[in-house]
């Protein structure tokens, strides 16, 4: 790891004043230190926001949730109100990495983490995400890579929390010293590789994430998230699904289906949602939604198996959300 100046900040304004000349924000540092230890980033200055207490905490109102970006994944997944009214959020935060990492890692850091593509994470490969011309995954080892919407980089969305937050139609609040505050929806927050391969999100170098805002789901909403890996004790998702159903009796009035490990940014599947909307949730309609979730997918040389996985992840998570199936023993517990 390179040596750096650590700027300890006690307020948002103090932190914002430091975000210049290549300085980067450090919260818990889990992802940043990983990148620095791997030698793919060498920032001269870390702006330590870890101790800014105003950025931490969960507030529930009639409008929904406001979550401080320094709130840990463990705090979110273990929060009683979130467990009972925002299951998809507690599920998705509760399935990231390992228990100890969830104790450290913040929701802001989780949303801002860079892709986990092994070529990107290695200093030995100068890839398109690092400003070069080339992607190594297309012609290389791509078994864990994207099957849809990848454009010039088939890495997959790394944040499980984002899969939940996208389904909940959440947004993030960003603040800079010069331009003040702005609010960006989760979908707009992420940058697809073709738009700018060196950016993962729209956050500017001088901006700080100051809140995550989650609107309250409509009455009758049920939601769930499930993650599938090759193993269960710490693995990256090879398929995952977030499902949010607004039910009107037995009929699904509105469905939101989100996926993480299918594409470079978290995606909603309009096709899968259409397969459920206005219909009763049964194994048949759930499976139809699953099949629809991979319509148009273009697998790479080594990941066609994901065409089997996502339909199953979606249908089983739809049934879980609808209360018609238990948590899938084949998914991470």
């Amino acid at each position: 790891m390179n040596s750096f100046v650590l700027a300890e900040c006690t307020s948002v304004s103090a932190a914002l004043s430091q975000l210049n000349n290549g300085a980067v924000v450090k919260a818990s540092g889990v992802d940043l230190l990983d990148r620095m230890k791997n030698g793919i980033e060498e920032p001269p200055k870390l702006v330590n926001i870890r101790n800014i207490s105003e950025l931490r905490g969960i507030r529930e109102t009639d409008q929904g949730l406001t979550i401080g970006p320094l709130t840990t994944l463990a705090e979110i997944s273990g929060h009683p109100a979130i467990q009972s009214r925002y299951q998809i959020l507690s599920d998705s935060c509760g399935h990231a990495a390992t228990p100890h990492i969830r104790n450290m890692a913040t929701i802001g850091g989780n949303l801002l983490q860079h892709v986990q593509c092994w070529y990107y994470r290695s200093e030995e490969f100068s890839c398109i995400r690092k400003g070069k011309e080339f992607c190594f995954a297309f012609g290389g080892l791509n078994q864990y890579h994207a099957i849809m919407d990848y454009g010039s980089c088939p890495s997959v969305a790394p944040s499980s929390a984002a899969v939940g937050l996208l389904a909940l139609n959440a947004s993030v609040e960003l603040q800079s010293a010069r331009r003040g505050k702005r609010t960006v929806g989760i979908k707009e927050f992420y940058v697809v590789p073709d738009a700018n391969p060196t950016r993962f999100t729209v956050i500017e170098p001088d901006e700080l994430m100051t809140a995550i805002v989650v609107p309250k789901p409509a009455p009758g909403t049920r939601s769930a998230y499930q993650k599938y890996g090759e193993k269960e004790s710490f693995d990256w998702a090879i398929a995952d699904a977030g499902v949010l159903l607004e039910m009107d009796g037995d009929i699904c009035r509105r469905a939101v289906i989100t996926m993480g490990a299918a594409s470079p940014v978290v995606r909603r599947s309009a096709q899968a949602e259409a397969a459920l909307t206005g219909k009763p949730v049964t194994e048949e309609t759930a499976r139809a939604a699953g099949r629809a979730s991979v319509e148009g997918a273009q697998p790479l040389s080594m990941n066609a198996y994901k065409l089997d996985l996502f339909p199953v992840a979606v249908y089983r998570t739809v049934l879980l959300a609808a209360g018609k199936m238990g948590r899938d023993p084949s998914a991470a517990a």
């Binding site: 092994w118 070529y119 290695s122 030995e124 490969f125 290389g140 080892l141 090759e230 193993k231 269960e232 004790s233 710490f234 693995d235 990256w236 991470a332 517990a333």
Partner: peptide
């Protein structure tokens, strides 16, 4: 070059396996 010279992408059975 080895793409998984670590202990997460090189996957070893853990407590839940």
């Amino acid at each position: 070059l080895m793409v998984n010279p670590d202990l997460d992408r090189y996957k070893i059975a853990g407590a839940l396996e």
